[in-house]
Amino acid sequence: AQSLELLLIQFLMPDNDARRQAEEQIRRLARDPQVVPALVHHLRTAKTPNVRQLAAVLLRKKITSHWPKLPPHAKASLKQALIDSITLDNSHLVRRASANVVSIIAKYAVPAGEWQELLPFLFQCSQSPQEEHREVALILFSSLTETIGTTFQSHLNDLQPILLKCLQDETSSRVRIAALKYG
C-alpha cells in the first residue's frame, strides 16, 4: 500500500522519466483486482488532494474490468468509501473524481439491484444545506441519466422539483450551474 502511494506521488512529479516509470509500474499493478481496495485506501487517506484525485481517476479507469471480480464485501466497502469521499472530502476535484467512479459503478450495480441506496442518498444530498453535497448530487443525477437512464426514469418526476429549486439556489452559483447543465 505504501509503495502504491509512492508511485502515485511519483506519477504527479514534473520529472518525465520518474512519471513514466511510475505510470508503467501502476499499469502493471492495475491488472490485479486487488488494486481496487488499495486505490480506495489512498482515495480516502492520502494527505494531498492530488494523490486522492489520482487514485479516483485510476479507479475509474480500472473499475469496469475489476467490478465483476470483486467479492460482495469489497463492493460494499468501495461504494461506502465513494459515498464518504463525495460527502466528506474537502477537495472539489476529489469529490468530482469520486462522483465519476460512482457513475461508472452505478452503470452495473444499480440495474443489478446491487446499489439500491444510491438514488435515495443522492436525493438526500440534493436537499443538503451544504453546497458541495447539492452540487455533486446534481452532477451525479446528470451522469446517471446517461449511464442508467432506463432504470432512473421512474425517478424523474421526483427530480423535477429538486432541479427547479436548485436552478433558483440563491446561495450557490455552482449549484445553479450544475442544475442548468443537467437540464
Results as ranks from 00 to 15, higher is better:
residue 104 I to Y: 05
residue 69 K to L: 15
residue 151 T to E: 11
residue 64 T to D: 13
residue 138 L to T: 06
residue 26 I to F: 12
residue 98 S to D: 04
residue 47 K to F: 04
residue 79 K to Y: 05
residue 12 L to R: 15
residue 142 S to A: 02
residue 96 R to P: 01
residue 12 L to C: 13
residue 109 A to L: 09
residue 23 E to M: 12
residue 59 L to A: 14
residue 147 T to G: 04
residue 83 I to A: 10
residue 160 Q to T: 14
residue 37 P to L: 03
residue 147 T to I: 07
residue 149 G to N: 06
residue 76 A to Q: 15
residue 133 H to V: 00
residue 23 E to R: 14
residue 129 P to N: 04
residue 78 L to F: 04
residue 99 A to H: 03
residue 73 H to F: 10
residue 178 A to P: 01
residue 119 L to F: 11
residue 96 R to I: 06
residue 85 S to Q: 04
residue 172 S to C: 05
residue 102 V to N: 01
residue 71 P to A: 07
residue 67 W to C: 12
residue 169 D to A: 05
residue 95 R to H: 02
residue 48 T to M: 13
residue 116 Q to I: 14
residue 100 N to Q: 11
residue 61 K to Y: 07
residue 125 C to S: 05
residue 139 I to H: 00
residue 154 S to T: 08
residue 95 R to E: 05
residue 71 P to M: 05
residue 105 I to P: 13
residue 10 Q to I: 08
residue 158 D to H: 04
residue 8 L to W: 10
residue 56 A to Y: 00
residue 80 Q to H: 06
residue 65 S to H: 00
residue 118 L to E: 03
residue 155 H to Y: 14
residue 96 R to Q: 12
residue 122 L to I: 09
residue 159 L to W: 04
residue 180 L to E: 01
residue 66 H to L: 13
residue 80 Q to E: 09
residue 28 R to N: 14
residue 168 Q to E: 11
residue 64 T to P: 09
residue 1 A to L: 13
residue 64 T to Y: 06
residue 12 L to V: 14
residue 116 Q to W: 07
residue 79 K to E: 15
residue 73 H to A: 13
residue 51 V to P: 09
